[in-house]
Design a protein around this nucleic acid. Sequence first.
RNA 1: GCGCGCUUAGCUCAGUUGGUAGAGCAACGCUUUUACACAGCGAAGGUCGGGGGUUCGAAUCCCUCAGCGCGCACCA
Length: 747
Amino acid sequence: MNKKIDKEIKDDNVHPKFLKPYDPLATEDKIYKMWEDSGYFNPDKLPERHQKGEPFSIVLPPPNVTGTLHMGHAAMLAIEDIMIRYKRMKGYKTLWLPGTDHAAIATQSKVEKELEKKEKKHRKDLGREEFLKRVDAFAKESHDTIVNQIRKMGASIDWSREAFTLDEKRTFAVNTAFKKMYDMGLIYRGHRIVNWDPKGQTTISDDEIEYKEEKAKFYYFKYGPFTIGTARPETKFGDKYVVMHPSDKRYAEYKHGQKIDLEWINGPITATVIKDESIDMEFGTGVMTITPWHSTVDFEIAERHGLDKEQIIDFHGRLLPIAGEFAGLKIGDARSKVVEKLRVKGLIAKEEDYIHNIAIADRSSGMIEPQIMNQWFVAVNKQFKLEHSNISGINSGQETTLKEIMKKGVEGGAIKIIPERFEKTYFHWIENLHDWCISRQIWYGHRVPVWYKIKDKKSKIKDREEIFVGDERPEGEGWTQDEDTLDTWFSSGLWTFSTLGWPEETDDLKVFHPTSVLETGYDILFFWIARMILMTGCLLGEVPFRTVYLHGLVRDGKGRKMSKSLDNIIDPLDMIAKYGGDATRLSLIIGTGPGNDMKLSPDKVKGYKNFSNKIWNIARFVIASTDGIEIIKGFNDYTEIDAGYCAERDNMLIDITYDIENFRYYLAGEKLYHYIWHKFADVILESSKKIFEEGNSEEIMSRKQILLVSLNKILRALHPFMPYVTEEIWQELYKGKSLLMVEEWPV
RNA sequence: GCGCGCUUAGCUCAGUUGGUAGAGCAACGCUUUUACACAGCGAAGGUCGGGGGUUCGAAUCCCUCAGCGCGCACCA
């Protein structure tokens, strides 16, 4: 009998392509093209039942145009495609909108490195215009690679709406947002302490810093009657304030504002005593001197007491003339020399080993040097009137702050974060949030939409400049645009609505915003998610999305972040070529819950390739042993004989539907896998062989029915997870009908 | 310092509201005119990190300790 089946398949030529084993390579590209040509990725082209359905929208977290996609991106695509395909089958009007991110600093530094390596040139050798041409060319190339990779993953994404953070429409949205927020008083320019990256020659935000532990010496210097502790002797030249806690009894005899003459690095100075409660009495000697120009904490103390601030280190990390004989030295070289001089002068009390964190720019790996600079900021604590609000807890026309908007969006339940524990992390981050520095001294990105005109060269600095903020250069002579560009996250913050046409009031915006789900890695919760909530709340008075689903990071065998490891990288394209897109997808879904990291090995992907083949052979068996496909029309497989199997199957389908509704894709995937292989194939198919040999006609008929109906339902349920193989079988089974286009969710 | 997570078979991890421990991979034995060897059948492998508590019953809830990892803050 079995031998006969196999023979039939081959000999009859009924299913000429339906041979063993399943070959993903020969199948997937062809199927993707068919899907794409069908137009069904575009919500406007979906059939009637979807047009009446509820909208369901996801914007793709735009990959950086810095190169290629890694396994983390592949996981993101797999999860989002499952969401979209499931909702589409359920009859929703589904939109999944793709795009890419110009990723200002990341992309620019990549091109700079290449320029340095290949042509031994700095970007300044090319000039702004020529350099930007190079970056654009690189970005274009990356873009094309990325788009190809997204297709390979089987993403049912609407290419007709593709966006780029730096394209014309998005640039207009950025400029409009900037102007609105400037007019609302939420964007301001001012001299504030910022994170300066001397290597990248730009400011960066707090979130772009990484901290690394470093062993260092901690020195105690004699500073007049005090002993002060410091890890940075080379910044101490200008220190003329000595700070202690007001209730520190050890220093009760010294009064706030008291002047003390003392001998310091380059000779005698007059120090002023400052009492400030921020001082930790337990740390060191409980006394310190401050360097307000190069330390955030010191800057804040200086602000509180109206103290002088002086720059010690220049923007290339070298000491300024205030350092006297040390002027011009790099800070790294200066330290030991300054210590040596203090030693000679007998001003060192003691030194000890200590471990501290040094701040590193995560893109350039330059050591951050705080500097006071004139930059553009977003004010997060400033009160302003939110004209229109859909955010629970904030009424239209109410006074609020951006911080409050970020808080209320999640607190009030308008946004649900999965897994929930990240809500705590999110609130904690908001508590510590400072004004956001948005200007960058790099070339690639959105140029700050501000023009300056010098009114009167002789007048005081304050009103010397006339400022114009807007999308285009103002009328008249003498205007020059700000040289700086905007933080890349400023444009990403608009992503859910800039992609839908904002600031125009488009239909897309009305139908699809707020978006349904934002699915991304937990590592950009602050960078991106928080900023989207901020920008959307401020500009639209609503939340950008209803649910945030955070996936874990994909790590290599050694537990390193796949996006950062240099060797041992698993390339999604390699996996797809070897094991197929379906297998690659499933390996990134099963075995990992939201927010948990996963270690991925090629063996796991291989395992799911075997599963694709299993499904393929299940289908071959069912087709060959049921005399064709007509039998399926209009019958119910709940016969008395096999009702138990049917109920079990349908309960499983209800179960996984519940899992999917609750974002437990890993469970749904595993349950399907388990049912298909170990129940449907191992038990039902195996027992069918016997029934077909020995059973009576009623038993045989019942069994044929259950096989066909089960296969039909299983393929539909599995389709969001493994779209290619299920589609290929479906088309064989139902002669050219498409699973993507016509089929509904099975329960 | 504040917060979060993890610890279950050799490896990677599931285990949704507490009811006698599961999967994949690897390894072992048998099976090759079988829908599928990218397979089937079978066997093996775990005091669920330690300790304590709640409960008729705990991998699951509570407390505590330890190891590992992560985030934030910050160390003058």
